[in-house]
């Protein structure tokens, strides 16, 4: 028997990941491990490579080098199988303007092969506050409502892993609070889980969030990572880390490279 304890299996394991667009590198040898049920929050200035990393993790973009494993499976070899376990919210809503909110969710429920999805669609529409507008075309929705529906779409198939690229984009404070509460529940921090048949929050999801909102980000983070110039420049456990201390660290590592975390009203 080996004396060395077996290394726990990471839900997401990224090794030496690079991505080049022509001669320009967006990612330069990123290494990350996200454990099952862990909530990792990525901070960094514009152009740091955060969205590129999320696009690669969600299988929308092929890396130029390095490896990604999700749930122990290689993304390069098992992308079709892995997608079933991913829920993604990105800058774009990934929805159809000419379909209603309900039709959009029904369409995606079909693609995810969900049996009898109606109760789940109803629960999610209620959770994001759009049940009364379920029959309206998405093109009639405000930016915030579209983003709320995009969140419902990402949670539709009860994914093990959530990849959220600035999920609070366009949300008003009330909707941002709703999202924050939902993410807290999904990361195992919430007090009012509605049960497995609805939002399915009986277990903590593995969550990777990109955000510019420092306080919100830290409040859902188990671990915080700062990305700059395509590299991980700082990584820390987020428990007991206060926003002001983290901002000082952020400024120290990122300096004047583009916009930093907004810090929910901090200068």
């Amino acid at each position: 028997m080996s004396e060395k304890a077996a290394e726990p299996v990471a839900m997401i394991e990224v090794r030496n990941l690079t991505k080049a667009f022509g001669s320009k590198y967006a990612l330069r040898g990123v290494d990350l491990r996200v454990m099952p049920g862990e909530s990792l929050v990525l901070f960094g200035p514009n152009g740091a490579g955060k969205s590129t990393l999320v696009r690669i993790l969600s299988s929308l973009s092929r890396p130029s080098g390095g490896t990604v494993h999700i749930g122990g499976l290689s993304l390069a070899q098992h992308a079709d199988g892995i997608r079933r376990y991913l829920g993604v919210v990105s800058h774009a809503p990934l929805l159809y303007d000419s379909l209603t909110a309900e039709e959009n969710l029904h369409f995606f429920a079909g693609l995810y092969n969900l049996k009898k999805p109606e109760p789940r669609i109803k629960a999610l529409l209620e959770r994001v506050g759009l049940y009364a507008r379920r029959g309206d075309l998405v093109r009639t929705f405000s930016r915030g409502m579209v983003q709320r529906l995009a969140i419902a779409r990402a949670l539709l198939h009860d994914p093990e892993v959530l990849l959220l690229d600035e999920p609070d984009t366009g949300l008003d404070p009330q909707a941002a609070e709703m999202l924050h509460g939902l993410l807290s529940e999904l990361s195992g921090r919430g007090a009012n889980s509605p049960g497995p048949e609805h939002s399915g929050v009986e277990r903590a999801r593995t969550i990777v969030t990109v955000t510019h909102s420092l306080e919100r980000g830290l409040s859902i983070a188990d671990r915080a990572v700062i990305l700059a110039n395509g590299r991980v420049v700082f990584e820390t456990a987020a428990h007991d880390l206060d926003a002001a201390a983290f901002r000082r660290l952020y400024d120290q590592y990122v300096g004047g490279r583009g916009a930093g975390p907004a810090g929910d009203g901090l200068p």
Partner: peptide, 11 residues
């Protein structure tokens, strides 16, 4: 609206 990405994300 990025919906092609939505299709590509489906299994």
């Amino acid at each position: 609206k990025g919906s092609l990405a939505g299709l590509l994300l489906a299994p």
